[in-house]
């Protein structure tokens, strides 16, 4: 039903779009590339449409939606209770749209002998209970723990899915400012462990099996890979059918949208028929 409305919306775009041909997005640096690719495609398809995408982090995206400075907020996590509360007080009604799935592979140097860890072992490494690779079947090296900065949605997701509410990352852990920087650090450091979005993991690093399951599109869609998350776009209220916002959000279910999401290394929400 919804898909058909979106299809109608797409067809109607040429006529309706003139009324509101501007769309402003802000938020997660993880979702940002998807939003940018969608925006580029839509702007090429329908001249006169103007879509701006900023990447200032999930927290800033939520803030922008709350302040009304963006139409769609990109978040790599769900809204926090405090954010929901602030929005309720201001009369903003956030509606979540899942645009893609992302998995957080735990990555190590390619020369590392360890093939897989349990999620508990990953937690113990990050909290400092396990400090040497030989404790988990590797060679005798002190583990270099690398995390994303606590400002990132990636960190929040890792904390929520792996560490849990109580655990704290150990004192000596390094913090890197982007997914690319984490990969850079891990591919250069033999004893390192890190995590980054699936889209950032290539052959220069080794992704570990978690609880015996390797991170991949299939394992994420089957919901067997444990460190996976939904990527959201939030709007203030459900956008009316036929508006640019509705078309934009519907992109992720079109063939072109799926292609874009896959190209960026994420996992589309629907499987191709």
């Amino acid at each position: 039903m919804r898909a058909s409305i979106i299809a109608v919306g797409l067809l109607a775009l040429g006529t309706v779009a003139q009324a509101e041909d501007k769309l402003i997005l802000d938020g997660s640096t993880t979702v940002g590339p998807i939003a940018k690719a969608f925006a580029e495609y839509l702007m090429r398809q329908t001249p006169g449409v103007n879509i701006t995408v900023s990447e200032s982090g999930s927290g800033n995206g939520a803030k922008a939606l709350l302040n009304g400075t963006c139409d769609i907020a990109d978040l790599s996590r769900h809204l926090k209770d405090s954010e929901k509360q602030a929005m309720a007080e201001k009369g903003v009604k956030p509606v979540a749209h899942v645009v893609a799935y992302d998995a957080l592979p735990v990555i190590v140097h390619p020369s590392n002998r360890v093939k897989g860890l349990t999620i508990e072992q990953v937690r113990d490494i990050y909290t400092g209970k396990i400090t040497n690779w030989k404790e988990v079947g590797g060679s005798d090296q002190t583990i270099m723990v690398i995390s994303r900065d606590s400002n990132s949605g990636t960190f929040e997701t890792f904390k929520e899915l792996v560490l849990g509410k109580e655990a704290k990352i150990k004192e000596g852990a390094e913090y890197a400012g982007s997914n690319g920087a984490v990969r850079q650090r891990v591919q250069m450091t033999k004893a390192a462990i890190g995590y980054a979005g699936l889209g950032f993991v290539d052959r220069s690093v080794k992704a570990l099996e978690i609880n015996g399951i390797a991170p991949s599109q299939e394992s994420v869609l089957a919901k067997t890979y444990p460190i996976a998350r939904e990527l959201f776009m939030f709007t203030n209220g459900e956008p009316a059918a036929g508006t640019l916002a509705a078309t934009f959000l519907g992109m992720c279910r079109t063939d072109k949208g799926r292609e874009i999401v896959e190209e960026l290394g994420f996992i589309p929400v629907t499987v191709k028929k």
Binding site: S56, G57, S58, G59, N60, K63, L66, N67, S82, E83, Q85, A86, D149, S150, N151, S152, G172, E174, Y175, G177
Partner: peptide, 24 residues
């Protein structure tokens, strides 16, 4: 030879997430 954290880097790194609307 160990990693450290500085004031300036903390301000720059944490400002995005620190929730100014709720005055955290």
């Amino acid at each position: 030879l160990l990693p450290v954290r500085t004031l300036t880097a903390t301000i720059a790194g944490d400002m995005g997430e620190a929730d100014q609307m709720t005055g955290s």
